[in-house]
């Protein structure tokens, strides 16, 4: 009915909404280009947008290979962060006494600046995938655990009573009510975690690596190839955006019952 008539106007409205942003972005790029030319800025200090675009085309194979390495780190690290965070939350929620012991330790650990652990992980695990994945997990599992935990614990007490009134134990209540109920907050935690995973991968590569976008950024900056640095940063950003949208798509697939923004507007 209404929803079927909507798509076309919604898409065109989205285009109208985004047009000013695109225009402003273009104006900024033009001003940037003009300023470089006008003030004769050295390319190793700040390259012109055109120079960055050129490097992206010329060095595409290098950038692509580096992006694949980083993407692998992010993907594995993010998945392990999700698994760790969910497991921690379920354990805390399900085993109350153990949870009371574990929770303060996790909060304490969260206050350790995890970036500072990168050199130690390099020391322990070398220059390959493992230290980056580990760094991502220690950085990114926390928002997953917190989101999941608050989702598990915010179930309506009446619903728990109802389950208990037919003799359901804590395990059944966890499986049938708490876990599905926690999904929206889990997804919110995962969205934070995926962004942190990108940062974790970069920091891991800065600390010690022989491949990847982070490594490329560091290497290119020591060579004063600033245009390549910018190109790599752009690649990282796009990578982060792609991962974020994958998580958001998963959210829409997993929790279709969550009221959509458009539905709320049509009420």
């Amino acid at each position: 009915m209404i929803t079927q008539a909507l798509p076309t106007p919604r898409i065109s409205r989205a285009l109208i909404d985004i047009t000013p942003a695109i225009l402003l972005g273009l104006v900024c790029l033009v001003l940037w280009e003009a300023a470089i030319w006008l003030f004769k800025v050295e390319p190793y200090v700040l390259p012109a947008p055109s120079a960055i675009a050129l490097v992206m085309i010329e060095q595409f194979p290098v950038l692509a290979v580096a992006a694949l390495v980083t993407a692998e780190e992010i993907l594995i690290g993010f998945i392990l962060s999700a698994v760790t965070g969910i497991a921690v939350a379920v354990i805390i929620a399900r085993f109350e006494t153990f949870g009371r012991a574990l929770y303060p330790l996790i909060v304490l650990f969260q206050n350790v600046p995890k970036v500072a652990l990168a050199p130690i992980f390099i020391l322990w695990f070398g220059y390959d995938l493992a230290p980056k994945v580990l760094l991502i997990v220690v950085i990114a599992f926390f928002p997953v655990a917190i989101g999941m935990l608050s989702g598990l614990q915010s179930v309506d007490p009446s619903l728990v009573s109802l389950m208990r009134s037919v003799g359901a134990g804590p395990g059944t209540i966890l499986k049938r009510v708490r876990l599905p109920h926690a999904l929206p907050q889990l997804m919110a935690g995962l969205k934070v975690a995926v962004t942190l995973s990108v940062i974790g991968a970069l920091v891991g590569e800065f600390a010690g690596a022989s491949a990847g976008l982070g490594y490329l950024i560091q290497f290119a900056s020591t060579q004063l190839e600033t245009a390549l640095v910018f190109a790599a940063i752009l690649f990282v950003s796009v990578l982060g955006l792609v991962f974020y949208y994958v998580v958001e798509m998963a959210e829409q697939y997993l929790i279709p019952w969550a009221p959509k923004f458009a539905d709320a507007n049509n009420r």
Partner: peptide, 9 residues
């Protein structure tokens, strides 16, 4: 109960 406490999913 007073709240229907249905599962939204």
């Amino acid at each position: 109960f007073q709240d229907a406490t249905l599962l939204p999913w």
